[in-house]
């Protein structure tokens, strides 16, 4: 007879039946998924922006860049599928978290007040939803070409070094310029980029926090990084749209 085991609480021995699912279902596990998938998408947004900034160079640059990407073939599809998976996980988990959080808060205060939560942090769900709509529109628009703006899918780009046998390729430069000449489209893009700026300004800092990197000395730099990245993405993308809309690029 021994009572030695009495010193250990049963929970100290308990291991959940499926450890991966336990992680996925836990509050912090979900945050990790949101943070990691968010990080993937932030990376994509930054690369995407850098690529698109070639619009300010002669048309051949961006067209060649697009052609290069297309030529990656299966690798491109791997990127697309990964990105899509990240996107889906991000959306599903944030929707689940939001719902859980609404339930967890229960009855709201008659008189609400906020001390230091930023507007961006409190509107993540809504900025996220509108961005979701934007992304669908964006894919329909430029990737699939289902939104018929000017010169949407014109195949008249001839690579410089190409010989006559090469087929003509997609003129991305014309598509962009054509697309953003439409003021309705441009305004929608601008508004969405503004929301993306907000979303990133909280999202990047949150990622640093969730990944456990926001230590005391890094708390402030994380916030600056977050705002900086948000604004950089906004200004870069907005510059493209505005430059075309106001005819600086034609």
């Amino acid at each position: 007879m021994s009572t030695a085991a009495a010193a250990d609480a049963p929970s100290m021995r308990a291991v959940p039946p499926n450890r991966l699912i336990a992680f996925y279902r836990s509050s912090i596990g979900k945050k990790w998924i949101v943070a990691l998938t968010g990080l993937v998408m932030v990376g994509f947004v930054v690369v995407h922006l850098i690529g698109n900034l070639q619009i300010f160079l002669p048309p051949a640059y961006i067209n060649a860049y697009a052609a290069k990407l297309k030529s990656l073939g299966p690798v491109l599809w791997l990127f697309r599928i990964s990105l899509f998976a990240a996107f889906v996980l991000h959306v599903i988990n944030t929707i689940q978290l939001s719902r859980m959080n609404r339930v967890a808060k229960g009855e709201r205060y008659v008189k609400e007040a906020t001390v230091q939560a930023t507007v961006a942090s409190r509107t993540m769900f809504y900025s996220g939803l509108i961005l979701l709509a934007f992304i669908i529109f964006h894919i329909l628009h430029f990737t699939l070409g289902w939104i018929p703006t000017e010169n949407i899918h014109v195949m008249d780009y001839a690579p410089e070094a190409g010989n006559a046998k090469d087929p003509l390729l997609h003129n991305v430069w014309k598509m962009l310029v054509g697309g953003f000449r439409n003021p309705f489209v441009s305004v929608f893009y601008l508004v969405s980029m503004g929301l993306l700026c907000m979303h990133l300004s909280h999202g990047v800092e949150s990622t640093v926090q969730t990944l456990g990197l926001r230590t005391k000395p890094l708390a402030r730099p994380a916030r600056y990084l977050s705002w900086g990245l948000g604004w950089a993405v906004f200004l870069g993308n907005a510059a493209i749209v505005l430059a075309i809309l106001f005819g600086f690029i034609k």
Partner: peptide
């Protein structure tokens, strides 16, 4: 963390 979730507390959204 598991007990926290089970009690019905919400998640941190870093505000």
């Amino acid at each position: 963390v598991r007990q926290h979730d089970q009690e019905g507390f919400g998640n941190c959204t870093n505000q």
